Computed example of a mutant assay.
Amino acid sequence: MIARLLQFTTGLWLASVLGWLGWAFSRGRPLTAVLGALLLLSLHAVVLGLELLLHRHVSRHDGVTPAPLRALSRAWWTECVTGVRVFCWRQPFRYRSESDFLPPAGTSSGVLLIHGLVCNRGVWNSWLRTLRQRGIPVLAPSVEPPFGRIDTWVPTIDAAVRRLHAHTGGPVLIVAHSLGGIAVRAWLRQGGDAALVQRVFTIGSPHRGTWLARFGWSPNARQLRLDSPWLQALARHEAKTTPRVPFTCFFSDCDNVVFPPSVATLPGADNRLLRGWAHVDLLDAPEILETVLQCAAAPSPVPHADWRTGTASKP
């Protein structure tokens, strides 16, 4: 569904640009044609810039030291490029280009990749390719419905965890981006077998919600509003649950979607601050992939890092 939606929006965007160029040139207005086309092509950049300005305003009293304007500007430019590549190419047209990989059982842990809101498995293409090259079993389902309640993702996650565990015979590593991390927590609350999971890595997941979700209209976006009743109930359940699955939460001080930054952390988790990365671009952070690869190749406790004393910055 998301692939078809993004195919439509990408086609509409390009058709609007070409239509404007044709209309303006046909009336002998070349300057108007070029300026209008540039405006249409840069609409996503304007939205991303507004998100980062809101991030800077909302995050000024957060526990994480605010990112300087230079870092926010660099994150904005990179996310402009990454956003087009992911939402106008990988997800609408290349989401089947990298297949799941279930080799004969070996010594590696299996890795389950869970995408976020308005995404499909195409967002994981580079991850799928790398994990396959390393011989690591990996599944990346496209989870639907995309705009329903977060709880509706639970059956797909449960089936994928059980399939991967049955194939490898060992506990699964789960890597989840954005809303995917909250869906994994919902799965654990609704009876997900913690014994099947070695560790959960979340990447830019709004564990306490996000300020930006106040503008969301879908049921899952409303669940992601800051400290929403649904998220508070989830946290209360987790506080009473033992033993708990270990979490490593990667988050950024330049995230244009999940902010203020500290909302992407969990009490008791290994919370790791990566400075300078925007929301989707965070999936390309080498430290995250390397940490998962090390954990998959040699299942063992992941060294704990405290984001208050040590952080990694974007090169």
Rank of each mutant, 00 (worst) to 15 (best):
H237Q: 13
L54M: 03
A239L: 13
T241E: 07
R272D: 05
P66I: 10
G180T: 07
H279I: 09
W77L: 15
H304R: 12
T311Q: 07
E290W: 01
W230P: 00
A166R: 15
L69W: 15
A33E: 09
A15C: 08
P92H: 06
T78A: 09
W187P: 08
T9H: 00
P261V: 05
L113I: 11
S108Q: 11
P171R: 13
S26Y: 05
A176L: 05
R96A: 00
G209I: 02
P267A: 15
R275G: 04
E290G: 06
R308W: 13
A176R: 00
P261R: 08
F259T: 03
P261F: 08
A278D: 08
W23Q: 09
V81C: 04
V154W: 07
F147K: 04
P141S: 12
A239T: 13
E79D: 00
T32R: 05
L35I: 06
W124F: 13
L69I: 01
P299E: 05
N256V: 05
Q190R: 13
R60H: 15
L52T: 01
W153L: 13
L188P: 04
I114M: 07
H165E: 15
P145N: 08
F251L: 12
A33S: 11
H44S: 09
H115I: 11
R214L: 11
S142E: 05
P260D: 07
G209H: 04
